[in-house]
Design a protein around this nucleic acid. Structure first.
Lengths: 237, 237
DNA sequence: TAGTGGTCTAGACCACGCC
DNA sequence: GCGTGGTCTAGACCACTAG
């Protein structure tokens, strides 16, 4: 019953928050291992465990003889992994709902196969356009079975993030995904949305997200204008 | 001058070889931490360090109360499977070297920043065109510092896979990647290679691979004609 | 209950970067 | 020389799995 929270996790979370809040910026050195030992009354083994985790998450790097430094984040749309748009890009991101969550039909536009059980359930749909500053960079279309998210509306969104909303309001996490990626001509309709020629190339990403709730699968079709902001991601073991 | 080899590295290499040689197969349990302590005359901390590295490399997983088990599949690194093209697409894949490995210069074509130390080293380069059946689908260009792979030639390739070669011949694993993805018009030259119009969209993927050898970073530029075969991957926690 | 991995302590010595 | 991270020891207690 009682979840014992490891000490290293407190240190890890504390440092991560300070990095995300800008207490430590990219290039800055966080406190040394010995300083963390004193500050949290722990041994170096435990301090290093916390730092090991932050390294795995890509927040810091160790430099022998110098210290642990906050890593630089490139200004790209990192969404290919499980991270999500708003988390990865940071500030300067705006979102406009082109379609608030409504009951809809399963669309032919969904590339990856919709499972039998999903297709028999009613479908929720929403559509958003994402901007960096005033430049539209990504059109995002999402479908998922209606049954699993009671009272789901646009106003519920936590920090404008769908995944963060799932995690915090419904305790549902993304546990896997299947993707297909294409380079295509923009359709007439999409070209108009992005304000580009219909002969321009668009990046088309089809994703099927698996969640910790076996009944909830999310189908997404993303269209990205990568001419100014390429889609990017990083992955570290 | 004398590089002192850490004890955990011996354990790590020993276990990795046994896994690659089939002494332990996927699903098998490797010796417990306490057994490793006795076998190598080390403490549990050191044994765990070795296992931590093997986990990061994707070879094993720990199961609380049971042991450490050899993993079934290699994890995927972001966009493309680490196993590489040949295993991801399946049968009917052919590869043609457009340029066998040679000493070359660091190219302007590399999108992601080349580190200072890499740029100061001499550079190895090779280029391959990948087919599904007789259709060219991916042009692959790779650069890496010359210093780290002695006697590296095209004939060394294990199963036609660069990464498998690194793993089996040099015991080097991919431990991370940074990617940028763009949808672009095909260049004149690339259009000719793929046999398409130069106004056609091409998927352009720029990757910087980090390996278990800190001195070896691999820079790749991939160009894919996704009209018939989209790029895909799956990701599971 | 025995064995496994998960966490943690309180030290130690070494290698690296910098002044 | 001094502070940093890199490795290692010899324990300890806890949580999970399985017979």
């Amino acid at each position: 019953m009682k979840k014992t929270k490891p000490k290293y996790l407190n240190v890890q979370i504390h440092l991560k928050q300070q990095i995300q809040q800008g207490t430590y910026n990219p290039g800055d050195f966080i406190p040394s291992e010995n300083q963390l030992c004193k500050q949290f009354s722990i041994t170096r083994t435990t301090a290093r465990k916390a730092l090991d985790e932050l390294i795995k998450e890509g927040f810091i790097e160790r430099i022998h003889g110098k210290g642990s430094r906050v890593k630089e984040r490139r200004h790209t749309l990192g969404l290919l992994n499980v991270k999500g748009f708003s988390e990865a890009v940071g500030e300067g991101v705006n979102t406009k709902f082109l379609q608030h969550p409504i009951k809809a039909l399963w669309s032919d536009e969904i590339i990856l196969p919709v499972s039998e059980t999903d297709r028999n359930a009613s479908c929720f749909y929403f559509e958003r356009l994402r901007f960096v500053g005033k430049t539209p960079v990504m059109l995002e279309k999402n479908w998922f079975p209606n049954t699993k998210l009671p009272q789901f509306t646009a106003t519920d969104f936590v920090d404008g993030s769908f995944f963060k909303t799932l995690s915090q309001r419904y305790l549902i996490e993304i546990v896997g995904s299947t993707q297909e990626i294409r380079s295509e001509f923009a359709s007439e309709k999409h070209a108009k949305i992005f304000g580009i020629e219909s002969t321009s190339p668009l990046l088309h990403i089809s994703i099927k997200f698996l969640t910790s709730n076996p009944k909830l699968t999310i189908y997404s079709e993303l269209y990205c204008d990568t001419s100014a902001y390429p889609v990017g991601n990083s992955y570290y073991l």
